[in-house]
Nucleic acid binder design. Structure first.
Length: 580
DNA sequence: CATCTTAC
DNA sequence: TGCTGCCC
DNA sequence: GGGCAGCATCGTAAGATG
């Protein structure tokens, strides 16, 4: 349990107390403590051991006790009590946009609404209208929020799926009865969200494997059926293990990896060549054909091997037949990244820590990129603090020979499309990422104008998280995607593939369009900590899903070449000024 | 127009 | 619930 | 030093409500 997790628990306690109508100052105390823990740097275990937790601001007698309890047991009795006292559905209610603890409390008190279903029903009956603090507008927004939540229900982020897959394959892979093992399904294909995790194992007797699978810590066993075992992890994510004989493994892996559409198209392709492809194997008139791997299967079907990420029936079979599949980008192709936040705004790591981590990864540059001044909530930098950071960066850079920190900024795109600093200051950065962080609900026309204005600004190097979506939480804002991508291509503005697993924005389906329009992509971690640099992994997967090659990606270029691109973009501005 | 809630 | 200041 | 009362709330802006 680290301080962030404890902070989250306190945050939740504060919210639940507020829904319950508890003492507002008690609520505030939990909020303040949650904040204080986030800001705290030091050893909580150390302080707890010494009985000195109360030295943390906002932590007094009771909260020190609570911190100690979470450190010891991993949870708070108070939290469990609150959840038990309040209706089961309040957690979900609070996830609806524009529905916070205050309104949730009113819904609970006046209408006894404690679940999504009840709320939806009440909205449809217009029962929210006469409630204090509610009106027609809020009711509509809530109803839309419920629809979205229902749509996302039971889905998980790719990062969660990969984590679960890694956990389980680690447990099974070394088992002597397990000849081969692989993740499959949407996790293997790198889909941005997944419903469940599929694993395929070759081995016998399967009984033993299944027992290991069921013994996964924290897992709840579901009813087994045939060769399929199911468990549900603590977070609700379901994992299926399909057990097959070693001979069946390649065909089974292919089948369970999908996608369904890819399988159908592949089967059709096989039929055209006189083969029958099924989950059991590949056969022709002469019977079953022995295959050692998926590559074998594809080869026999006269196809180049198709990476799992491409198996979405978007032309990959034709491309494989003509041997013109892309040479997909790999994580090792990255030479550096942009879009990394530091302690100066809402990050947790210092410049020095980030530089060290980037060098350890073998990167030759790291683009520092804090929030701009209008992002008050994230302690965005004003001009003075920007210049201060520049000095710090220069100072650090003077110590490196083969590595460089780049001076960047994530500048808010204001509602009128302007960037968040005067031009003179913007001109001093090595790169500028322009991002939208407010006014998500402009109409499509206005939002498009706003984005086009930002792209047309010669100081803009990149467009950050271009659609603004938060996976499983918030839809993309509305804008003319085609027009924005075309403008980016025309102006030489790089489009970000934000690799944060909650964003993966630009969506992989549009990446290919963007590339074909001539847009250059940057895979950016949007890291707020040293660990956050690992986000690039998901970005690379999405890029592969978008058929991208290293040459399509700015940060796969060597440092010199990348710098040249940044310079050329800036020089382009100078040239246009000189001869309009 | 002031107040409240929510969200960044 | 935390913190301060006041009282004893 | 303990007990007690009284007060407390980052930072801002949008947007709805009344």
């Amino acid at each position: 349990m680290d301080r962030i997790q404890i902070s989250d628990i306190f945050q939740q306690v504060a919210q639940l107390l507020e829904v319950q109508g508890g003492n507002p100052y008690r609520v505030g105390a939990y909020r303040r403590a949650a904040r204080s823990l986030v800001d705290f740097s030091g050893s909580l275990d150390g302080l707890a051991g010494a009985g000195r937790l109360r030295e943390i601001p906002g932590i007094g007698e009771k909260l020190a006790q609570d911190v100690a309890e979470v450190l010891k047991t991993g949870d708070l009795a108070l939290r469990r009590e609150l959840l038990a006292t309040l209706p089961k559905g309040v957690e979900e209610l609070l996830r609806i946009p524009n529905l916070g603890p205050k309104r949730a409390r009113i819904l609970l008190e006046k209408l006894q609404i404690g679940s999504l279903g009840e709320l939806e029903y009440a909205c449809n009956e217009n029962r929210l209208l006469d409630l204090p603090g509610f009106g027609a507008r809020i009711q509509d927004v809530i109803l839309a929020g419920i629809e979205r939540l229902k749509r996302f229900k039971g889905r998980f982020l790719l990062s969660d799926g990969l984590e679960a897959a890694a956990l389980l394959t680690a447990g099974l892979a070394n088992h002597p009865q397990c000849a081969q093992l692989s993740e499959a399904g949407s996790v293997r294909r790198g889909c941005e969200t997944v419903k469940d995790v599929d694993l395929v194992a070759a081995g016998r007797p399967c009984r033993v494997l299944l027992d290991v699978f069921y013994a996964t810590p924290g897992a709840v066993m579901q009813t087994p059926r045939g060769n399929k075992a199911k468990i549900r992890l603590k977070n609700g994510l379901q994992v299926d293990l399909h057990c097959v004989s070693p001979a069946q493994f390649p065909a089974a892996l292919l089948h369970y990896t999908g996608s369904r559409e890819h399988n159908i198209a592949l089967r059709e392709h096989a039929r055209g060549l006189g083969f029958d492809l099924s989950p059991q194997g590949l056969r022709n008139a002469g019977g079953l054909i022995a295959c050692a791997s998926e590559e074998d299967l594809y080869r026999i079907l006269q196809l180049a091997p198709i990476a799992p990420e491409l198996r979405e029936n978007r032309g990959e079979i034709a491309a494989a037949a003509e041997n013109r599949l892309p040479r997909l980008v790999q994580e090792a192709d990255l030479r550096g990244v942009f879009h990394v936040h530091t302690v100066a705004s809402d990050g947790r790591a210092t410049l020095a820590e980030l530089a060290a981590a980037a060098r350890a990864r073998g990167w030759s540059y790291l683009g520092i990129c804090d929030h701009s001044q209008s992002a008050h909530y994230a302690r965005g930098l004003d001009a003075e603090r920007v210049r201060e950071q520049w000095r710090d960066i220069d100072e650090l850079n003077s110590q490196f020979e083969d590595f460089q920190l780049l001076k960047g900024i994530e500048s808010d795109i204001l509602v009128d499309g302007r960037l968040d600093y005067p031009d003179e200051l913007l001109a001093g950065f090595d790169f500028v990422i322009a991002s939208i962080h407010s006014h998500f609900n402009l109409g499509p026309a206005a939002q498009t104008r706003r984005l086009l204005a930002a792209i047309a600004n010669p100081r803009t190097t990149m467009l950050g998280h271009p659609s603004g979506r938060l996976l499983l939480a918030r839809d993309a804002y509305q804008f003319d995607q085609q027009a924005v991508l075309q403008a980016a291509a025309r102006h030489g503005v790089v489009v970000e593939l934000n690799a944060n697993p909650q964003r993966l924005d630009l969506d992989w389906r549009l990446l290919r369009t963007a590339r074909d329009l001539g847009v250059l992509i940057a895979i950016n971690p949007d890291a707020h900590s040293v660990q956050g640099l690992d986000h690039v992994r998901y970005g690379v997967i999405s890029a592969r899903k978008g058929w991208l090659e290293a040459r399509d990606i700015l940060n796969c270029r060597e440092k010199g070449e990348m710098l040249q691109y940044l310079r050329a973009r800036r020089a382009g501005f100078a040239a246009r000024v000189a001869c309009p």
